[in-house]
Structure formats: structure tokens, C-alpha cells
Computed example of a mutant assay.
Amino acid sequence: MPKPRRMGRRTWVAAWAVLCTVGLVATAGLKASSAPDPQPKKHVSAECRDLIADIKTQLDKAKPEAGDDGILAFSRQRPSAEDCSDEIRDFLRSYQ
């Protein structure tokens, strides 16, 4: 009866390297294909749009005066029944 052929160390290392490469390629492919869905655009009321436009105007006016080191504070001067804090927060995060 013939003896079974033993695999050498180089063969094991090569097989391990191939399996790791295949795993990395598969992981990269899965990550690329599972991009998050874009968030649906929220409806912003006219009052909030006006308030955000006022804030943008104030920011644009204050930017040349204060430079990048200035602090700008906002206060709401008109009473409002609607809360626009989420919309304002989203605007300020995206404003550059």
C-alpha cells in the first residue's frame, strides 16, 4: 500500500495566503455593495425655511468680520409655535 503524500510547509502557506486573499476580496465586495440607502428628504415648513435663510444671511455677514475664530450667537426674536431645532441643526452641520 502506498504511503499518502504529505503536503509541504510551502503548500500550506500558499493555500493560507490564497484563502486570506479571497476573504479580503469578498469582504471588500460586500462592503461596496451594501452602501446605506440615502435618507429621504424631509419636508421643511416655510417658517423653518425662512428662519434658516435668516441664519444663513447672518452667518454670511459675520464670516468676513469675525474670520474663522469668531463666535456667533443666535437668538430667536419672533415667537413661534413650531420647533425648527432639528432642521437648524442639520443646516449648521452642512454649512461650510
Rank of each mutant, 00 (worst) to 15 (best):
M1L: 02
P2H: 02
P2C: 01
P4A: 05
P4S: 09
P4T: 02
M7T: 00
M7K: 11
G8H: 02
R9M: 02
R10T: 04
R10S: 14
W12K: 10
W12E: 09
V13S: 07
V13N: 07
A14R: 13
A14T: 11
A14L: 08
A15I: 13
V18M: 11
V18Y: 05
V18A: 15
V18Q: 05
C20D: 08
C20R: 11
C20V: 09
C20M: 15
T21A: 15
V22G: 14
V22W: 00
G23E: 09
G23P: 03
L24M: 06
T27K: 04
A28D: 07
G29N: 11
G29P: 02
G29T: 01
L30F: 03
A32V: 05
P36V: 06
D37N: 10
Q39M: 12
P40L: 12
P40E: 14
K41P: 13
K41C: 02
H43C: 03
H43K: 12
S45D: 05
E47C: 01
E47F: 00
R49W: 00
D50E: 10
I52V: 11
A53S: 15
A53K: 13
D54R: 10
T57Q: 15
T57P: 10
L59A: 06
L59N: 09
L59H: 05
L59D: 04
K61T: 14
K61G: 12
A62H: 07
K63L: 04
K63S: 09
K63Q: 12
K63D: 02
E65Q: 05
A66G: 13
A66S: 14
D69F: 00
I71Y: 06
L72W: 00
A73Q: 14
S75A: 15
S75H: 11
R76L: 07
Q77H: 02
R78E: 13
P79K: 09
S80Q: 13
A81M: 03
A81H: 07
E82H: 03
D83Y: 06
D83F: 00
D83T: 00
C84P: 08
E87P: 05
E87L: 02
I88D: 06
I88M: 08
R89A: 15
R89M: 07
R89Y: 09
D90N: 12
D90R: 12
F91P: 09
L92G: 07
R93N: 10
S94L: 10
Y95E: 04
Q96M: 02
Q96K: 14
